[in-house]
Nucleic acid binder design. Structure first.
Lengths: 313, 313
DNA sequence: AGGCTTACCCAACCGATCGTTGTGGCTCGC
DNA sequence: GCGAGCCACAACGATCGGTTGGGTAAGCCT
């Protein structure tokens, strides 16, 4: 196909052969094979080269499309040239929203946002090490547990907001403090036991004496939002940047939590050696994000962004 | 590529192999070769089939595009399935305009309008016979001279109009008769000597005592139109349906010629056996075109449309 | 006109590829 | 624990796709 396109452009099999680094006879056989396959003559042979037949003219644009498609397909996965591929916990998570913001201000970036669908940060780290993804947004982990050649930086901290329906007693509050949430029924379905999220909610519950119900399967956001809209006492926690779409008649309210701000710490893991060239700009973009309002609460394993790391290796 | 797409859809190499009529091992090797080529793993192999990796997911849409492109490319030229390909004398000729009209009312038709760039109707007839084109618009020729298995029908007659600039003495006429054109300087550049057009203008000139200057090379329509716009005595003849585009400030006028209407006879040549299925509708469309206004003049080799043919074979 | 160059095609050859059959390892479910 | 199902590896044969070598036709230059 490539030979055909180039021969059509150059008008000579000989030049095509030189350019593609094979003999003229090879090109001749390629074209002949293509013509045999299609049962159609693509070129008329003249003494000073080749010229497209009508069939060849009809075929050429398709051939160009195919060749270009192959090139795009290869560069889509070829290590080193493929799009910057970043793992996020979910396509509606704060991380995905941050990446989307970045992409909107840099639309030329070839960005591929994927979800590895694994809970264990160590598995995600292994995927980074193996090159399956160029970077992964996860919670903060002990740097000593990271595989060789994978490093981690603090990305940003995602402040939590309370999400309630219109009949909830706190529905009209502008802001809330954690003490106002004491004993409140908070439902966070779909949390995998012993995962980073389970640990986060455990610490949160004991630190502020909350009643967090993190059990039960997650039947999807629609079910959760439906339940919230109808309930007079149920609430849930969402990230301030998380993207949620609900029907207008649900009338749910997001209420910021302050004094202290509750936040989930996020880091970005990526290879120490030869990271994807596009990653630098993402990291720079993360540095521009607004810091958490003070005072802030973070789980024990995370220090506020900007302070020194614990430990090392 | 096809194997990859199908395997990604089915999730099993075994099923893919059955469907494509080869052994499972063959599919396995195809995928492995593709992975080796791309230096990337496309599937994770499990005990109950294969599953796309992230790279595989990124590659899949490209692969689909390529496969679809190949299919389209093949059907674009495969005899029997390719688009209906019709030769016209020029893309702005009356024939092309008629085809365009047809296509606008039948947009689903896969139509390919091409120009063979040959003057001799016999060469065009040979192209029809060889299957290079499915049909060819040419002037009427003696049916006895047609190759075997090529037939000809009267398509339509293209009435001529006089094209003049604003300073021409006939510029404000609504219609003209041939006698009013007597001795008028009419310039028709680019006519190949001894071609069907040369013969037509010869007959026309002697029948109505016109001064038709059919010599000189054709430097393109822009040059011709420029010359007409500036000239106070030069005119040319164009087909009533011919599509001409000129700058608005040229202010050229097309003036119909009547009593008799002067017309160039056009026929359609196509294979007698197994013509392209889409051709039937085109022929039907031609039959609906308005006949020439009476009285009409045609060159000696053509009888008015609808009357019996001369000769035969 | 004859020789030279530059196209292309055809034929022979040879290594790589692609398909087959046969076999083995792995995981899941009974 | 064992068979069923699926995929990978190995060996082998046919085919393919490349090279070299030779041949013909057309244009160009003495």
């Amino acid at each position: 196909m490539r030979s055909f396109v180039r021969a059509a452009e150059l008008g000579q099999l000989q030049h095509t052969a030189d350019e593609l680094g094979v003999t003229q006879q090879a090109i001749s056989k390629r074209i002949a094979a293509l013509e045999r396959e299609l049962e159609v003559r693509l070129f008329t042979r003249t003494a000073r080269g080749v010229e497209l037949t009508l069939d060849g003219q009809a075929f050429l644009p398709h051939a160009r499309t195919i060749v270009a498609g192959v090139d795009r397909a290869v560069t889509a996965v070829r290590p080193g040239s493929r799009a910057l591929r970043i793992d996020v916990l979910g396509l509606r998570s704060a991380q995905a929203v941050v990446l989307h913001d970045y992409w909107r201000s840099h639309p030329e970036t070839d960005l591929d946002v994927v979800t590895l669908r694994v809970n264990d940060p160590q598995v995600a780290a292994a995927a980074v090490q193996a090159g399956d993804v160029d970077a992964s947004f996860r919670t903060v982990v002990d740097p000593a547990t990271l595989p060789r050649d994978v490093q981690m930086i603090r990305a940003f901290d995602s402040p939590l907001e309370l999400l309630v329906g219109p009949r909830h007693p706190l529905a009209s509050a502008r802001t809330l403090t954690p003490s106002q949430l004491r004993k409140l029924r908070i439902w966070v379905p779909g949390i995998v036991p012993r995962s980073e999220w389970a640990e986060f909610y455990d610490q949160l519950a004991s630190a502020f004496d909350l009643r967090i119900d993190a059990t039960g399967p997650n039947f999807g956001n629609e079910v959760l939002l439906d339940a919230l809209a109808d309930s007079a006492d149920m609430a849930t926690l969402v990230g301030a940047r998380d993207r949620y779409i609900w029907p207008a008649n649900h009338d749910l309210r997001r209420i910021p939590i302050v004094n202290p701000t509750l936040a989930y710490p996020l880091s970005l893991m990526f290879p120490s050696t030869n990271p994807h060239p596009g990653l630098r700009a993402i990291i720079d973009h993360l540095a521009t994000l607004a810091p958490l309002p003070e005072p802030a609460w973070l789980p024990s394993w995370a220090t506020p962004r900007g302070s020194a790391h614990r430990g090392g290796h």
